[in-house]
């Protein structure tokens, strides 16, 4: 499958999302004619949008790998919660309320390890025990919503952590995690479209029997992608934490639907990692709009502006929602009765 093919089909969907963002800006600008567009769209806004987009992009890349191979991991949101919480707990364990930058990086690594450990269990339930993928994925979210704040309360006596440390920017005030994410997105694209593992992943999702008769173990491919999806979601959660600097466990926790938006991001991107990352960036921009409005002094109810990404998800999913899912998604594979 050629790159041109993908971009041709994906661009319509992404175009829709761009349109939505522009309309959102337009609506904002009609509220006030005092403020020029150049004050709203600043370098700082773009950079913060990138920052907001990274967790979504990471979860999306992981999720699309799993789904390409035939497993719908709708537990991304839950794994992000676990990732964010484990990073916070690690930071706190290593450096108390004033961790160093080294501790931040250690926390990122720890979050990935914890997520991998949990996803291994999850993958065994899905693949070996043929769990209902939708129900089990929801369960991961619920478990995350319960146990992360619980453990937070055990450690800190409250559902949220005290202030820890956020990651220091490197060049141009940018977070190094943005670079890391870009690297992961590009690498994911190369693996998916230019290596044999990518072929196997696609075949596992479209026609697992074809892969099996080619002598490749379908379920091993699926274990690998599901565990990768958990690792990426966990990393996404940890990145969110490393940018925020403390863990918030109230309401739907600090992750607050970003895992779900990640799923929508890769649907928009038509299962292409680069397309998914682009969609994530647009969602990041919507997410930052609220902050930006306040910065430039536009007085909109923040409660409502915060809902923009969710509304965007529904609008775009409806208008361009008919993505072609891999044929075998959701079906457990057994090579012998």
């Amino acid at each position: 499958m050629s790159v041109a093919d993908y971009t041709a089909r994906t661009s319509v969907r992404l175009g829709g999302l761009v349109l939505f963002v522009l309309i959102a800006f337009g609506v904002a600008l009609t509220f006030t004619d005092e403020i020029a567009l150049e004050r709203l769209v600043t370098f700082g806004f773009l950079s913060r949008s990138l920052e907001m987009a990274t967790p979504i992009a990471l979860a999306a890349v992981g999720g699309l790998y799993a789904e390409k191979s035939g497993v719908f991991n709708i537990g991304l949101e839950g794994f992000m919660i676990f990732g964010a919480f484990s990073a916070a707990a690690t930071m706190y364990a290593l450096g108390g309320t004033s961790p160093t930058q080294g501790h931040v990086w250690a926390a990122l690594v720890a979050a990935v390890l914890v997520s991998v450990a949990l996803t291994v269990l999850f993958a065994v339930l899905l693949i070996h025990f043929k769990a209902d993928q939708i129900v089990a994925g929801l369960a991961v979210w619920f478990v995350g919503l319960g146990f992360a704040p619980f453990t937070a309360a055990v450690i800190w006596g409250s559902r949220s952590s005290p202030g820890l440390t956020s990651i220091d920017p490197i060049a141009f005030g940018q977070s190094p995690l943005i670079l890391l994410t870009i690297g992961i997105v590009v690498a994911s694209w190369v693996v998916l479209y230019r290596t044999r593992y990518g072929n196997w992943i696609q075949a596992a999702g479209e026609n697992p029997e074809a892969l099996d008769t080619a002598g490749i173990d379908v379920n091993r491919v699926r274990y690998a992608t599901v565990i990768f999806s958990g690792a990426m979601a966990g990393l996404g959660g940890a990145v969110l934490l490393a940018h925020a600097g403390n863990f918030g466990g109230t309401g739907e926790t600090m992750v607050d639907g970003r895992g779900w938006i990640g799923i929508v991001a890769y649907l928009f991107g038509n299962y292409n990692p680069i397309g998914a990352a682009a969609a994530a960036l647009l969602f990041g921009a919507l997410d930052m709009l609220n902050v930006q409005f306040q910065t430039v002094g536009i007085d909109l109810p923040s409660r409502l502006v915060n809902l923009l990404p969710y509304v965007a998800v529904i609008v775009v999913l409806t208008a361009w929602g008919k993505t072609r899912m891999p044929d075998a998604v959701g079906e457990p594979y057994e090579s012998e009765e």
């Binding site: 499958m1 696609q202 075949a203 479209e206 026609n207 029997e209 074809a210």
Partner: peptide, 9 residues
């Protein structure tokens, strides 16, 4: 039933 992946080349 052919063991081919329809969406691949």
């Amino acid at each position: 039933h052919f063991q081919l992946v329809p969406s691949m080349t």
